[in-house]
């Protein structure tokens, strides 16, 4: 699905990603963990197409196409979805309204007919159940005055509406209470299929109790420095990141 090779990215003159490699196949779930400031959100932003970041080296191939060559909206239309760590608030724009535009632009791009108002509402009703989100929340200004948990659930709801191929969840579990965490995890598990893939950025093992990853990676200092299976997450939970940092720094010496 996606093949990231030797990716270098910077913002201003600060280099953040320093030769990152990652390959994700359809049907897989990859968890990315790593200390604060390691570059996890940067990776997510670069893949989604945030213009502030400059890719200086490396390549990203998505479904056989050059991802870095696509405009932000085209990436989404081709099937990339980013659930934001910090979803923005947009006064005066309701989720329902902008999603109608989004869904139909995406469908048009994929050669499908746009949804009319009735089928759009029908799809919405169906997807709302997945994350247990209320209609009234979706008619309000986007994320304005939403609680932390509501914002995250709204992200997953949008993901369900857009039916992407590669879902990147950036700390969607942060700030969720136990129930919300279960709801979000359930949502992801419902959407999981052999045709799509997930990159889940998280700091906590507990999300991975609900969404069982196929692989766990540690991102440190702009690179994936260790990869393993779900046991790696448990080990990190127990020991912290120090042992990894020590390993990496020992190699450098």
């Amino acid at each position: 699905m996606i093949k990231i090779v030797n990716l270098h990215a910077r913002i201003g003159d600060k280099e953040i990603l320093k030769g990152l490699n990652l390959t994700v196949k359809a049907g897989e779930v990859h968890a990315i963990m790593g200390p604060n400031g390691a570059g996890k959100s940067t990776l997510a932003s670069v893949l989604a197409g945030r213009e502030d970041y400059e890719v200086t080296e490396g390549s990203v191939e998505f479904e056989g196409k050059d991802l870095l060559d696509m405009a932000t909206d085209v990436r989404a239309k081709e099937g990339i979805f980013l659930a934001f760590q910090y979803p923005v608030e947009i006064p005066g724009v309701s989720t329902t309204n902008f999603l109608k535009t989004a869904v139909n632009e995406v469908r048009t791009h994929q050669g499908k007919d746009p949804l009319d108002a009735v089928s759009f509402l029908g799809t919405m009703k169906e997807k709302m159940k997945i994350v247990n989100i209320d209609q009234s929340l979706l008619s309000r200004s986007l994320n304005e005055g939403f609680s932390g948990g509501e914002k995250k659930r709204n992200e997953i709801f949008q993901m369900a509406m857009l039916d992407p191929k590669l879902c990147i969840l950036d700390e969607t579990d942060s700030g969720l209470d136990i129930d919300a965490l279960r709801i979000v995890a359930n949502g992801v598990n419902t959407l999981r299929s052999k045709n799509n893939a997930f990159i889940i950025v998280t700091h906590y093992q507990r999300l991975l109790d609900y969404i069982i990853p196929d692989f766990v990676h540690v991102l440190y200092n702009g690179q994936i420095v260790k990869s393993g299976t779900k046991e790696l997450a448990l080990e990190l939970e127990e020991k912290g990141y120090d042992f990894i940092k020590n390993e990496v720094n020992a190699v450098k010496l």
Binding site: G49, D73, R75, L82, V88, F98, A102, E105
Partner: peptide, 8 residues
């Protein structure tokens, strides 16, 4: 960016 990342 948020809106564009949704395919708009």
């Amino acid at each position: 960016f948020y809106l564009e990342a949704r395919g708009i």
